[in-house]
Design a protein around this nucleic acid. Structure first.
Lengths: 411, 411
DNA sequence: TATAGATTGTTTGAGATGTCAACAAATTCT
DNA sequence: AGAATTTGTTGACATCTCAAACAATCTATA
């Protein structure tokens, strides 16, 4: 692909860009007055009068009452219309399909969760059927649904809306899911890697709200990650996200199925921790874990480990904190390469709070080079429930706010 | 620092942005016709007529003759005016100060190189004096010099133009070099980390011209790197560049002065290779190296190693290719994290060509995950001489092209 | 209670930019 | 010589933001 050139701008683009900027700013910092918006966007008050009138006429924004003011006229505060329009978020995990209906404030209005079998049935039809179900069962007026966001694990082409599933899940392999859903509902659809979508959720709703750049990492069946640079999700040259889980922390470590050696995922994923716990267990006294996972830790899950660690089980704590130190080592590399403002640790690990953060923070404090003055803040995820679909909804919201023509064309 | 909000645009910004886009596009792909520019920038032909007239009137662009055309009117090709205006590039290395005068095509017109002693003299005055010397000795009309770019190793604040030198170089420590030079010549000055500047040079003049994103890496006294994303130099949140040299490839490796363990720099920098050659040498037969570096490889330099490797010396080749495999391991991590289109290996190593590239490429081919379809291209640097100052001049050019008001305000 | 002062929001008209469509210019092919 | 084709130019035009005056709304104070 030859290099793309920066594009020239024209007046229509200015118009839409300004509307996008206003919408995004209002979303992140609502409620705001017209004056506040003018200051933050560096547009003039006159322009904000114009733009806000449009947004109110379109039903996207409401005046929500007068704000406080020490002296002079009190400002009229603006917020997103709470229930004017709706979004659909859908998440495919390895075991289940979650679909939810959100309003434009990303509050949940309806949730549907179904176990799925990747090997059976026609994948796209199932998803389309269930999205339809959510719309009818929630009794939302279909015309008020504006967009659909879909998050899915593992390699996919964001631009083409295709999932490259492993061959054994033949039904999902090379599936142009984005386009199929788009056609079925005649709505804009955004497909996104699940960790990337979760990173966006941190940016919009979670611990990343105060930052312009951060690295998000989560551990479950693998180690997923997403990178936010300059307030935007970094997509990479091929639209495939970042793969912190497959950066190596030990070139002499074991071989990873990906071809590399000593990948972070081999030390810090859920299965890696379970494996480690089983190995260490044989040489230890009986612990709290055996009550949870049965003899020889036969049924051990990551949740068991986390529960046990929270209850003070030393083996579980040891295994988890070891994994967190590995996570820290991988993050040090990413930090030295990208110099982010923050690191956010998410998903299951956030139940552990400081128990997980402390070892990560220690490693980073000691081993990352102090770029400029400050090292990045290390934070725990703060996304609201239902966690799985919120990222997908954020992806749809983010897509919509950057395409205000999709929101305003109707008027 | 609170998050910065995206800013609204207005028509004046559109004007300058379009001029910047046209200038940048013309620079990278000159010669181009007005029609070519219109297609690449997605502006209309009418707009290009207007903008090009301005640029010609300002003396920045010349019509350089008719191009070929199968049918119809032949296009008038445009190029940057070869000698209308000039730029200064300056590079501080650990041992010498290089300053050169360039035209807007980044061709060298005058070079001055001086050995320096970091411990003695007033640093800023020396640099300012020598820049003045270049201007007078080259007999360029001072008013035609438009901007100054300065590259320097090690941590610095791009935005504030300050060099944070190690304390032993007290004269250069916390020096607001950018502002001092700016005031001395009343010209815009850009200060940039040397590896970052070299990455820019690859983008504008070298192996990176065909790519929008790549990772540039060079090995000398350390391992330097620069990241180009989306056709722009990635600056990080604090304006400090990327530090691939201080990403770890082996958490059980030796401790690095930076605090981390097993940093890439400990395996792939010049001093690391020299050390390794000395260690291995004692157990080997006499080699070609002894002729170059004296008994016990007392005076061995990286250049010696490279020369010997080019002449087929097996020890030198072994040491270098080992270092390159380490470099590959570090690059695999960066690739899996950032998914760039290319990797460019520069500086001294490019004398080795495929001898250095092959082991790097092997490691990446085997260990990087194939994101989307293709793995990144692995290339060797192609910058023109004089290598050291070209990066600095590119930084100045890049700065100017993004601020066309600095170029056009005079008319 | 009236008035001054301060702050937010609105209106009007002006200025600037890129665009559109028609046209001019230059070249090849038949 | 004329049709076809491509590049470049011109002037009317639509539209966006902006500046400035103005309206609205609130507090403080005499």
């Amino acid at each position: 692909m030859p290099p793309t050139y920066p594009r020239g701008a024209n007046l229509e683009q200015v118009k839409w860009q300004n509307r996008a900027v206003v919408l995004e700013t209002l979303w992140r910092f609502q409620p705001l007055s017209r004056k506040d918006l003018a200051e933050r966007t560096h547009l003039t008050a006159a322009t904000l009068t114009n733009i806000v009138s449009e947004l109110i006429a379109a039903g996207l924004v409401h005046e929500v009452g007068l704000g406080e003011q020490l002296l002079g006229r009190r400002p009229m505060m603006l917020s997103f219309a709470p229930e004017g329009y709706m979004l659909i978020g859908a998440n495919l995990s390895r075991t289940e399909l979650s679909i939810a209906l959100f309003d434009l404030l990303l509050r949940v209005h309806y949730v549907l969760i179904r176990p799925i079998n990747f090997r059976v049935g026609s994948a796209a039809e199932t998803l389309i059927h269930l999205i339809g179900q959510v719309i009818t069962l929630s009794k939302v007026e279909p015309a008020r649904v504006l967009a659909i966001g879909i998050s899915s694990p593992g390699p996919l082409s964001v631009e083409q809306g295709v999932i490259y599933a492993p061959p054994q899940f033949s039904d999902w392999s090379n599936l142009p899911l984005g386009r199929l859903v788009e056609q079925a509902f005649n709505l804009p659809v955004w497909l996104e890697n699940d960790a990337n979508a979760n990173a966006l959720a941190e940016l919009w709703l979670g611990a990343g709200r105060a930052y312009n750049s951060f690295i998000y990492v989560e551990s479950h069946s693998g180690v997923g990650s997403g990178i936010i640079l300059d307030g935007r999700l970094y997509a990479g040259s091929a639209g495939v996200g970042s793969e912190l889980g497959h950066t190596s922390i030990d070139r002499h470590g074991p071989r990873c199925p990906c071809g590399n050696y000593g990948c972070l995922e081999l030390y810090a994923s859920g299965p890696a921790m379970i494996e480690r716990a089983r190995t260490l267990y044989h040489n230890e006294e009986p612990t709290r874990l055996i009550h949870l996972a049965g003899p020889n830790l036969r049924d051990l899950t990551l949740d068991h480990l986390i529960d046990a660690a929270l209850e003070g089980d030393s083996l579980a704590l040891h295994v988890i904190q070891d994994a967190c130190r590995s996570l820290g080592a991988g993050l040090v590399n990413a930090i030295n390469l990208l110099d982010p403002e923050a690191v956010i640790v998410g998903h299951k690990l956030n139940r552990l709070g400081e128990l997980a953060l402390a070892p990560i923070r220690d490693v980073i404090q000691q081993q990352a080079i102090p770029q400029a003055a400050a090292r990045p803040n290390i934070l725990v995820s703060q996304r609201p429930e239902p966690v799985a679909v919120t990222g997908a909804a954020c992806r749809a919201l983010s897509g919509l706010l950057h395409r205000p023509d999709l929101l305003l064309r109707s008027i």
